[in-house]
């Protein structure tokens, strides 16, 4: 199963990210992970939060352009070669990764959580079944 990530448009100028985090803070939204893709003019903040739907609504009410994107969140053992083994599966299945980022500090202390945006989420997910990896759900994320 995939989780929902919020993607937020941010102009590439001072203070824009802070505007977003202030809104999230005011509404007691807890961020799990954050990554930013930037160009010269603008950026997209990709945020994993405890309640993605709630956060998206709050951001829209506060005049942000935000959308929900399905991403895969996978807990992998925090050890050498951990990511490599996972990517080996994607590689063999010719799954294209558009972007990815990671965070530590999940419930499983010896695991890192990897977030993947892939071309075909469903196909990638089925490849990961039966490998003993923990594919996280929205509930898992909320629970962290």
């Amino acid at each position: 199963m995939s989780i929902k990530q919020i993607s937020v448009f941010l102009e590439n100028k001072p203070g824009q990210l802070k505007k977003m985090t202030s809104v999230l803070a005011q509404h007691q939204i807890d961020m799990r992970a954050l990554s930013i893709a930037e160009t010269k003019d603008f950026g997209i903040a990709r945020v994993v939060v405890d309640d993605a739907y709630e956060a998206a609504n709050i951001l829209k009410e506060n005049v942000f352009v935000a959308s929900l994107t399905s991403v895969l969140a996978v807990a992998i053992p925090d050890e050498p070669g951990g990511l490599d083994k996972l990517l080996d599966v994607f590689d063999k299945a010719k799954v294209n990764i558009e972007y990815m980022y990671a965070f530590l500090g999940g419930k499983e202390a010896d695991h890192a959580c990897m977030i993947f945006r892939v071309g075909d989420t469903k196909a990638a997910e089925s490849r990961l079944q039966g490998l003993g990896l923990h594919i996280m759900s929205n509930e898992d994320i909320a629970d962290l």
Binding site: S7, I44, R46, V65, S67
Partner: peptide, 10 residues
Amino acid sequence: MTPEMFTDNV
């Protein structure tokens, strides 16, 4: 920027 113009893909 509008929701119509926005996607998650830079």
